[in-house]
């Protein structure tokens, strides 16, 4: 045990770790939002509900099919991503030529409906979800205790984020996506099925939210409102990073998680508002966000 700036190391590193965990979720969720916004021009307010659905589907797979965490990591993003594909085909594709507001209203309404339905069936007290056996326990590093599951969340989320970034920024598929973001009409006139690409992009973004939901299930309770609480912060993260910037979403997500954690140590009163204060400052100085391209 030692002290840093008069703070016990245990508390400092504990909050840093918590910050990184929150940051992992911020990054995964804002990444999905950035991917969706880039391609669809839609601000996906359903994202929090889709994250919650991810946790619930994982819970459901375990309860009714005995399929555990590792299966859920694979199955849940596909199942929830597919519901995203249906939503895109049924509703969102009708909105692309309209103002942002319509997409926002539709996805916000959808989020309320989904949350309402889940609350109706499962109440709002929350359901427990077992941590996988292999990730229980932790390491005692001397200056702090490091739970295995949390390390896994950070490493896995970082891997997913960087893989997504790589695919979008460095591969042929990603080049198609970037080009279609810039000029969908011309890309389609080259023989690429842009509408299908848009549908799959939305499905992928939703799948990322669901994956975050699975990862969150053992840490937080599985609760119909778990996404609603988180998504407000995630939107602040997206605004700070810059709408539609992939690397911006990842870096800002992790950084703000850490900033929030450190604030809890040094000035706990501000920990709930620090992200929004940063957002206000960023909006004043760089309205397009830290990593955003000024239009």
């Amino acid at each position: 045990m030692f002290e840093i700036f008069g703070i016990p190391s245990q508390a400092l590193f504990g909050q840093l770790l918590l910050g990184l965990i929150n940051g992992s979720f911020y990054a995964l969720l804002s990444l999905g939002l950035a991917v969706i916004f880039g391609m669809l021009n839609i601000i996906n307010f359903t994202h929090g509900a889709q994250y919650m659905m991810g946790a619930f589907v994982a819970w459901f797979l375990l309860q009714h099919f005995g399929l555990g965490y590792w299966w859920s990591l694979v199955i849940v993003p596909i199942v929830v991503g597919f519901t995203g594909v249906v939503v895109e085909r049924l509703f969102l594709q009708r909105l692309y030529k309209l103002d942002h507001l319509y997409g926002l209203l539709l996805t916000f309404g959808l989020a309320l409906i989904i949350q309402g339905v889940f609350r109706n069936y499962f109440g709002s007290s929350g359901l427990p979800y077992q941590m996988p056996q292999s990730l229980t326990g932790g390491q005692n590093l001397g200056f702090m205790f490091l739970p295995n599951y949390r390390v896994w969340v950070i490493v896995f989320s970082l891997t997913i984020c960087l893989t997504t970034w790589f695919v979008i920024e460095r591969t042929r598929l990603g080049a198609n996506l970037r080009a279609a973001t810039e000029n969908p009409t011309l890309v389609r006139a080259f023989g690429i099925n842009v509408p299908r690409m848009i549908t799959l992009t939305y499905g992928f973004g939703v799948g990322l939210a669901a994956l975050a939901g699975v990862m969150a299930a053992p840490i937080y309770n599985v609760n119909p409102l778990m996404g609603a609480d988180l998504i407000i912060v995630v939107f602040a993260v997206v605004v700070i990073g810059g709408m539609g910037s992939i690397m911006g979403a990842i870096v800002t997500g992790f950084t703000l998680g850490i900033v929030e954690g450190l604030t809890k140590v040094f000035f706990p009163e501000a920990s709930n508002t620090v992200i929004f204060v940063i957002m206000a400052i960023v909006l004043l100085i760089r309205p397009a966000g830290l990593f955003g391209r000024t239009a």
């Binding site: 042929r172 080049a175 970037r178 080009a179 973001t181 810039e182 000029n183 011309l186």
Partner: peptide, 10 residues
């Protein structure tokens, strides 16, 4: 219709 977000090869 050259894409700004793509390099020359892309």
């Amino acid at each position: 219709g050259i894409f700004a977000s793509l390099n020359v090869e892309e």
